[in-house]
Design a protein around this nucleic acid. Structure first.
Lengths: 153, 153
DNA sequence: CAATTATGAAACAAATAAAGTTACATGAAA
DNA sequence: TTTCATGTAACTTTATTTGTTTCATAATTG
């Protein structure tokens, strides 16, 4: 299966927008994210429609985050992408006549529901601010490591 | 044909084998499962290699379950299929240099691990015997319903 | 107001992966 | 020795995601 990586793409883009400080164009984002400007627009479109980001045309235009990072959960973003299915396996047939296949589907459906619940619970609890802090922590750690170990004259 | 449905296919086939009582050919299974004999062989191959099922060539040959249903967990079967990834979303890049993308990956990786754990826990706890009972329960319920509501002269 | 720069969106092409199909070799039973 | 069944490789079809081209629209700049 070709797996959906839009959530990964969008999160990466959003945090670069935050780091940039001013509106960032689709072309600039595309370079950061090693993809295409049209892919950026297409992927951000859902977030724009929900008011998570803002886009502006013309000179000085581009993308900005429209809310405080702490008020955007990863679940909000997932929903803005149209809630693509996060499960990698499916039933051969969704409404089979066969009693055996029905029983198999019941069991696998229940498993998928549990996995979706685990996904939603975690994604609801995490905001962009959390990831942003995680970036900062690692950056500081890296900086301190270099400071403690540098061998310059 | 988008998501992997081999687990669904294999479970359906195994329980038909159980119901059949004698060796069942790939062609017979393919009819039950609305697929192709080669798909059946290909999908069952991993289970044969692990000793969950047995296959016999020639007249009277076909597939049989090699162990008591209660001793085959759904996780055993999943592993026999080569442990295909059960998650439907992925990272854009697996080992990025960008600190931001690394932080995004850490978060999504952790979420996927939780989902995989939920999958494995459930699949480990369920055996073919459980599904088989579920089939029987529904069959009996259906039979009783018909008995209580029939309107024959 | 015209040139430039940006998004919006449709349409199309490439890449990937699962499922289906064909073909044939191998082995077991009648 | 013929028939039936699995084992496997190679190829085709279909579904889905991602990438690309193209052009319309809007906002800013000179």
């Amino acid at each position: 299966m070709k797996r959906d990586s839009r959530l990964s793409i969008v999160l990466h883009g959003l945090l670069h927008m935050e780091a940039h400080g001013k509106p960032m164009t689709s072309a600039e984002l595309a370079v950061c994210m090693d993809t295409n400007p049209v892919v950026v627009r297409r992927t951000m479109a859902g977030l724009r429609d929900r008011g998570l980001v803002h886009s502006e045309k013309g000179h000085g235009g581009g993308w900005t985050i429209a809310r405080p990072l702490g008020e955007i959960s990863l679940l909000d973003i997932h929903e803005s992408l149209g809630e693509p299915d996060v499960i990698g396996f499916s039933n051969k047939e969704e409404s089979p006549g066969c009693l055996i296949e029905q029983a198999v589907n019941r069991e696998l459906d229940a498993t998928r529901e549990e996995m979706r619940a685990a996904f939603a619970a975690r994604m609801r609890a995490i905001t962009l601010a959390d990831i942003w802090e995680s970036v900062r922590d690692r950056f500081v750690a890296h900086h301190n490591y270099r400071k403690d170990h540098h061998h310059d004259a």
